[in-house]
Design a protein around this nucleic acid. Structure first.
Lengths: 102, 102
DNA sequence: TGAGAATATGAGCAAGCACTCATATAGATT
DNA sequence: AATCTATATGAGTGCTTGCTCATATTCTCA
């Protein structure tokens, strides 16, 4: 049986990878084709393709074909809120660690 | 070298596990000792201990000893915002999936 | 129709993760 | 001091993940 925690964990673990976060940031700023993301991030084509698949499968991205290209966009904008909060938390954590040297 | 995405991923992957989410919910509602969480969640003691360690190490929880007990609380309340948003996203996703049968 | 371009997928591998059982440690109680 | 209680950790195991290289698929255009 699946509880709320399972669903939350599914979403979160789909996002919780540096490369996938970088991908989401690219898409956030309008780069929405596989072929543009790969060089922008210096990722192997097949690796990128698999990461994108994970994001689509988990419902975070939507994708559609346009000729040869596959385009992506975000399925739920709240994902970006999530990323922003994670960034804030990480920043606060770093500042606290650095305090010692002030 | 560590980029923002690495730090965000660190936070998110510390949270992205059903048991750790359940643990955080217990702590959110005032159960803050190891010895109360274990039975509440039906988790093996050593397993719980390791999950708590992950949460502390990543800076999400703080811990302190009080006699035999180890107590925990949240280090940054924004973690709960994160969990709430993840729940909202998961809920919207489920509703969309169910729409088909309406 | 045949070459080329963009994406997807099979296979294999190394590393990491979650879990359990058994044992160690640290503090409390008699 | 001996025992008990709460927590932590060592060791072992099976599963999952992320990555790469090679190959397949799908569509385009000369």
């Amino acid at each position: 049986m699946n509880t709320a925690a399972d669903f939350q964990a599914e979403i979160l673990s789909a996002i919780a990878h540096p490369n996938r976060i970088r991908i989401l940031e690219k898409i956030r700023y309008g780069i929405n084709c596989n072929c543009e993301i790969a060089p922008a991030l210096g990722m192997e084509q097949s690796n990128l393709s698999r990461h994108l698949k994970i994001l689509v499968k988990s419902g975070i991205l939507r994708s559609w074909k346009e000729g040869l290209r596959t385009n992506y966009d975000i399925a739920d904008k709240r994902i970006y809120r999530l990323l922003d909060i994670a960034a804030d938390i990480a920043k606060a954590k770093l500042e606290k660690q650095t305090e010692v040297f002030a």
